[in-house]
Design a protein around this nucleic acid. Structure first.
Lengths: 115, 115
DNA sequence: TGTCGTACTACGACTGTCGGAGTAAATATA
DNA sequence: TATATTTACTCCGACAGTCGTAGTACGACA
């Protein structure tokens, strides 16, 4: 079975993560599970990729973090919330996706890629 | 207008280039023009990206090069021809594209990306 | 004479992803 | 009760593909 390579997914992780923040704040572990579930196990994001995306996007102002200190055992969990700039970025990335899709499909040979 | 970023196109340049080699050998400058034309100016590949893709794909056995020495002014031109392994790679990349497309579109919010 | 088009090559920088390791508490399983 | 798994991260360095910049060299056109 074809696998999604890192070079191919690169640039879409942001979309994927932001999509899962559109309605509610969330945190790393949950987002990682949601990606897996929603993609029907076709894409499993690496933890390092996910957390470094959080860091990068927070630095760029697309998401904000806040910490839940009240978990059992004094553990804490870092939540992320999408900002207006993040929504705008998501919109732009979606547009870019549409365009990219259109372009790439000009270079895919016919039905089922018969070559 | 949305622009195609390097992170988004990354991983598809191979498909694009190989597609243009499926029927006939070609060379850098021509391929670059064809990409521009076929994509209706939506994607203009950088020269360095194109030529380094040639080098990489030749090293991987997906394409073979041969030189035309007989151009006017003693100039030469390096052509590339797709190999059977290259065709197989193209096929596999196309499959990967189908899968990736399916996955990504689960994270695109509705028609026109209304967020 | 100078610019544009053709057809590349070289080099180093950048960035997102990844592999591997480590931490630590809560919960499930035997 | 002992062990494994799940939860929830953090840190570090490596890698690979793309990109910016620069340079070469010839021919055609104005």
């Amino acid at each position: 079975m074809a696998e999604i390579s890192s070079d191919v997914i690169r640039g879409y992780n942001d979309i994927i993560i932001l999509y899962l923040l559109l309605n509610d704040p969330s945190y790393g572990y949950e987002i990682s599970k949601q990606i897996r579930t929603l993609s029907e196990d076709k894409y499993i994001i690496k933890e390092t990729t996910l957390y470094s995306a959080f860091t990068r996007m927070e630095k760029n102002g697309f998401i904000e973090s806040f910490v839940d200190q009240d978990l059992a055992g004094g553990k804490k969990r870092t939540y992320y919330r999408i900002t207006p700039a993040g929504r705008e970025y998501y919109r732009a990335k979606c547009e870019e996706w549409m365009l990219t899709k259109e372009v790439i499909e000009k270079f895919i040979a016919g039905e089922g890629c018969v070559v």
